[in-house]
């Protein structure tokens, strides 16, 4: 069994807003993720998925609790956490005036990938993601499918053991979404620990080894699909989700 790569304990996050006061976005969330595993965070919009993943990627500071990536604490050792992490989300854009090759080189350097291996690693990524014909073209000239491939390549160019995909298929057409899912599955085969958030049931069902159902900032249930089915006597993930979120049995 692979070792635990991501460990989250009682992770809590509150936001403060002049008009709405204190908003508890994430409350005492616990989970762990091992190498070669895809853990899905399944929740509706505003459930706390992105906030949780942003805390793990050190962009947000937890209000309470801890999160560790390869044993590095997100608060006390954020640079080491990010060095071992690749973060991909619909809101993480690319520099439009760089070429694909320049983009990959930049992110390898910034993520402190060994200098002597940077060039070969960039070429390896270009080949792996089929970017060869477009490697010299500026990002602004690429199609959205190609941009997405460059985005994944820049997420993994420094070969991090942990990857975070925050609703990565939002806004993608079916074919591009399937391509992306395929790439994520391949990364799992490489032994990466992958945190994958989504509100699309079929996606979670197809990709995730384990699923954590999150609602109103709390984890309602965690387990593999079979376990969740057994615990709820529901077959479809959609029904399982509704069961945990609303407490209503949707079986007719």
């Amino acid at each position: 069994m692979s070792t635990v790569q991501v460990e989250v304990q009682d992770l809590t996050k509150s936001f403060f807003d002049q008009s709405r006061g204190e908003i508890k976005a994430v409350q005492e969330v616990n989970f762990e993720c091992r190498g070669g595993e895809i853990l899905g965070l399944l929740g509706a919009n505003g459930a706390g998925k992105t906030t949780t993943l942003r805390m793990i990627s050190t962009v947000l500071q937890p209000t309470a609790g801890t999160a560790r990536v390869l044993g590095h604490d997100v608060v006390s050792d954020p640079v080491e956490v990010r060095r071992n992490l690749g973060f991909y989300s619909a809101s993480t854009a690319l520099y439009p005036r760089l070429t694909a090759r320049e983009t990959l080189t930049l992110f390898a350097r910034v993520n402190k990938y060994p200098a002597e291996r940077t060039k070969s690693r960039v070429e390896e990524m270009i080949e792996r993601f089929g970017l060869g014909d477009y490697a010299g073209a500026r990002i602004e000239k690429l199609s959205s499918g190609m941009k997405q491939k460059v985005s994944i390549a820049r997420t993994v160019v420094h070969d991090p053991p942990v990857l975070i995909f925050d609703e990565p298929t939002v806004g993608l057409d079916v074919l591009n979404a399937l391509d992306l899912q395929k790439a994520i599955q391949e990364l799992r085969e490489d032994g990466k620990a992958i945190l994958f958030s989504t509100h699309i049931m079929s996606e979670a069902e197809r990709l995730c080894d384990r699923i954590a159902i999150i609602d109103k900032g709390r984890i309602r249930a965690t387990g593999d699909l079979e376990g969740l089915r057994a615990a709820t006597s529901q077959h479809y993930l959609e029904d399982i989700f509704v069961h945990y979120v609303t407490g209503n049995d949707t079986t007719e």
């Binding site: 990627s57 962009v59 954020p78 990010r82 809101s91 854009a93 690319l94 993520n111 820049r154």
Partner: peptide, 13 residues
Amino acid sequence: RGTLETLLTTAAS
């Protein structure tokens, strides 16, 4: 542009 979050999630301090 949305590149700031990309940058902030890298290993750059």
